[in-house]
C-alpha cells in the first residue's frame, strides 16, 4: 500500500525574461495505490507542471509545499532517486536519445530500478512479451530511443516502460493525446493491466474525457489556474464532457 501526498504545492518557472512565474498555486492531493485519479483541465492550467514537478524536472522550482511518497520527502530526492522510489512519469513529449537503443535503455533502467541487472535471457523474454502486449514491433528493440517514432509509437513505448519498471505510482501526462482510437485502446489496455495489479496507483492527466471511457477513474479533479477547483467521482468527467471547463475558468477568475 503506497500513498502519494501532495500538500499546498506551489511551483514557479523562470520565463525567458528572467521573471519568476507561479504556475501551481497550492495543490492538495492524496492518492493511494489501488486508486485511479484523473486530473482534467484546460490547456495552460498547470497540469503538466504538476507532473514534471513531481518527477523533479529542473525547470520547475517548488517554492512552497510538500510531496511525499509513503512519508518520504520526494522533493529532497534527485530525479533518478524518485524513479527508484517508485514514481513513474509517462511523458507527453518523450525525448529522442540518439545512439541509445531501446533494449539497452530498458535494460539499464530496469537494472537501476531493481538494483541488479536482469539475466539477459530473462530480460529479453520479458521485454518481448511486454512489447507483444502493446503491439510493438520487435524491431523497435534495436531502434534508438524514440528516434523517428510516430506519436503513437512514443506513447506505447512509455507504457512499455511503465509495465517493465513496475512503479508504485504512475503519472500519465496526456498519454492519450495524439492517439487514434486503435492506439488509444492498446494504451488503455496497458494502463488497465498495470492498475489491475496490486500496489499500483494511477494519476491520469488529460484534457479530454475520451480515455476515461476506457480507463475508469475513481476520482476526478478539475484543475484550473494552478490548483484543484473541484473534486468528484467518475460522474464529474461526464459533466465536463457536456459543460466544458468554461464555468470553472470563470469562477476561478484565471486565464484558461
Amino acid at each position: 500500500m503506497s500513498t502519494l501526498e501532495i500538500r499546498d504545492l506551489h511551483v514557479s518557472v523562470t520565463d525567458p525574461a528572467g521573471e519568476s512565474q507561479e504556475i501551481l498555486r497550492g495543490v492538495d492531493l492524496v492518492m493511494r495505490s489501488g486508486q485511479t485519479h484523473a486530473i482534467m483541465g484546460p490547456n495552460g492550467s498547470g497540469k503538466s507542471t504538476l507532473a514534471y514537478a513531481i518527477a523533479g524536472h529542473p525547470k520547475y522550482q517548488v517554492t512552497k509545499g510538500s510531496v511525499t511518497l509513503d512519508g518520504e520527502d520526494v522533493l529532497a530526492m534527485s530525479v533518478d532517486a524518485r524513479a527508484r522510489a517508485g514514481l513513474f512519469l509517462a511523458m507527453q513529449y518523450p525525448a529522442e536519445v540518439p545512439g541509445v537503443s531501446v533494449s539497452n535503455f530498458l535494460r539499464t533502467a530496469i537494472t537501476a530500478v531493481r538494483g541488479e541487472p536482469p539475466k539477459l535471457r530473462l530480460f529479453l523474454k520479458e521485454m518481448r512479451a511486454a512489447m507483444a502486449d502493446l503491439s510493438i514491433d520487435p524491431v523497435f528493440a534495436e531502434r534508438n530511443v524514440n528516434e523517428g517514432f510516430s506519436g503513437g509509437e512514443k506513447k506505447r513505448h512509455e507504457i512499455l516502460q511503465l509495465q517493465l519498471l513496475n512503479p508504485k505510482i504512475a503519472i500519465l501526462d496526456e498519454t492519450d493525446s495524439g492517439l487514434d482510437i486503435d492506439a488509444l485502446k492498446v494504451v488503455a489496455d496497458g494502463i488497465n493491466r498495470f492498475r489491475a495489479t496490486e500496489g499500483h496507483g494511477v494519476l491520469l492527466i488529460t484534457h479530454y474525457t475520451r480515455i476515461l471511457r476506457y480507463v475508469k477513474p475513481d476520482f476526478v479533479h478539475v484543475f484550473v489556474g494552478g490548483r484543484i477547483v473541484k473534486q468528484g467521482g467518475a460522474e464529474l468527467a461526464e459533466e465536463l464532457e457536456t459543460s466544458g471547463y468554461e464555468e470553472f475558468v470563470k469562477k476561478a477568475g484565471a486565464p484558461a
Binding site: V79, D80, V145
Partner: peptide
Amino acid sequence: EDHHLFYLMARGIPY
C-alpha cells in the same frame, strides 16, 4: 542535452 539526461534519469538511471 538536458532533456536527454532528464528522460533517462526519470527512469531511475543515475546521472
